[in-house]
Nucleic acid binder design. Structure first.
Length: 416
RNA sequence: GUGGACGUAGCUCAGCUGGUAGAGCACCCGGUUGUGGUCCGGGAUGUCGCGGGUUCGAGCCCCGUCGUUCACCCCA
């Protein structure tokens, strides 16, 4: 009697062949622009001291207050599965003194993150993000470069149907001034209990409400953009200028709301048009107070997190993923024991030379093995049997055209 | 956390007013000795998500549960 099947935990995203190849392509595409810009890998634990997030991300945020996977470990420490990447990076930067060298410290990461939300299209309890952080300098050019790197990643996947929204949340001073007026404005609205509770937590949230009547009411609400002090405003103007220079189009969204408390100044979001309710494929911004809050120097930083799962969904929605680009160069079909040994030797040599090579295992009949070669999508196929071994020559067949040519085994490397 | 829809072979799904399961694709074998994608023939495959209830009898009805999905909320 078979045991009960064990299923994956609720809401996790898993990638198995053939889709895993597309996932890998998307993830690598998102990372590559960061590498090219001199960002270096930082590999961090997926669990951290809970306090890192309550202090770093902010206790009032939904992410911290109701979406964290938190548990006691065997030493009674409170541990949390990371719900986002920036806080952990800052912790490691401080802990390893990366802020003591040349600034900015430029780092990239990639991995799983965890949020205990109700799953939905594009929203998972374990999901993948690629992110970068540039820490230690307040130069507006860095803001623009960070945005450009994210944009380059999406472009290299082949995405076109997305938009970049930007705004500035200003510095603490600007925000405080705006908040006073916004709270005053909101108090004049009549709101249901849940909504006013949300507004009490973070009044900016109401800018994001999807209900028509709230949208209408909020149309006249004071905008943070109008409260920026001179230095915040000047910084943001510079950022926009650099984006123009880079030819990156954006739209200003002074009503943008971000869910993490640490954002200040330049803030941005990439939104895809073909996705459902979860349409944000990436976002980020500057954070002035985070490092000091975590016990480090008072340095500013800026970074982003890009959703690999959602970028893949977006790529599939746009139909820009080409499955065949993940196939092997050569497929070898050995007939007989001697041929099998030779096939493995040849495969080893070609692989060492950078080619991707597969072998038909299991002593399949030729017809079945050819089918396997066809399914694999391999560009070329060769059949290895006694006559090929004695003549040291094989018929190299190009699967797509069916054309064959005689090639010395020793010259295969040049032929494929 | 709230609300709606769904859960039948590996995949996509059909299954009439309840009478003990089917299609297409995929997979395996073959269509005379060593070359795939088309065509033809044959074959394997399911505790109908799980548990309980109603019934002479349930894939079809009821309850629960797990999961998926869509929206809210939130965000990547």
């Amino acid at each position: 009697m078979a045991e009960q099947k064990i299923q994956a935990p609720k809401g996790v995203s898993e990638y198995v062949p053939p889709r895993s190849a597309a996932f890998e392509f998307v993830r690598e595409s998102l990372i590559e622009p960061a590498r090219k810009a001199g960002y270096q890998l930082i590999e961090l634990p997926v669990f951290e001291d809970t306090e890192l997030f309550t202090r770093g991300v902010g206790e009032s945020t939904d992410v911290v207050s109701k979406e964290m996977y938190t548990f006691q470990d065997r030493g009674n420490r409170s541990i949390t599965l990371r719900p986002e990447g920036t806080a952990g990076v800052m912790r490691a930067v401080i802990e390893h003194g990366l802020d003591r060298g040349q600034l900015p410290a430029k780092l990239w990461y990639s991995g799983q993150f965890f949020r205990a939300e109700r799953p939905q299209a594009g929203r998972y309890r374990q999901f993948y993000q690629v992110g970068i952080e540039a820490i230690g300098l307040d130069d507006a050019a860095i803001d623009a470069e960070v945005i450009a790197i994210a944009d380059a990643g999406f472009k290299s996947i082949g995405l076109t149907k997305y938009r970049l929204e930007i705004t500035s949340l200003g510095d603490a001073q600007s925000r405080a001034a705006h908040r006073v007026d916004l709270v005053k404005f909101i108090s004049s609205m009549s709101l249901d209990e849940a909504t006013s509770a949300r507004a009490a937590l973070n009044p900016l949230r109401l800018f994001d409400d999807k209900r028509a009547e709230i949208k209408e009411a909020m149309a006249k609400a004071p905008l943070l953009a109008d409260y920026l002090n001179e230095s915040s405003r000047a910084h943001f103007e510079q950022v926009k200028k650099y984006l123009d220079v880079l030819g990156i189009s954006y739209i200003l969204n002074p009503r943008m709301v971000r869910g993490l408390d640490y954002y200040t100044g330049t803030t941005f979001e990439f939104v895809h048009e073909l996705l459902g309710a979860q349409s944000g494929i990436g976002g980020g911004g500057r954070y002035d107070g985070l490092m000091a809050e975590l016990g480090g120097q008072a340095l500013s930083g800026i970074g982003f997190g890009l959703g690999v799962d959602r970028a893949l969904l977006a790529a599939e929605a746009e139909g820009v993923i080409n499955e065949n680009s993940f196939a092997s160069d050569l497929f070898i079909i050995p007939l007989g024991e001697a041929a099998k040994e030779m096939a493995m030797r040849i495969a080893g040599e070609l692989r060492a030379a950078g080619k991707s090579v597969e072998i038909a295992f299991g002593d399949r009949a030729l017809k079945g093995a050819m089918k396997g070669a066809d399914k694999s999508g391999a560009r070329y196929v060769i059949v290895l049997g006694d006559s090929e071994i004695s003549s040291t020559t094989v018929e190299l067949k190009e699967m797509k055209t069916g054309a064959t040519s005689s090639v010395k085994i020793a010259s295969l490397i040049k032929a494929i």
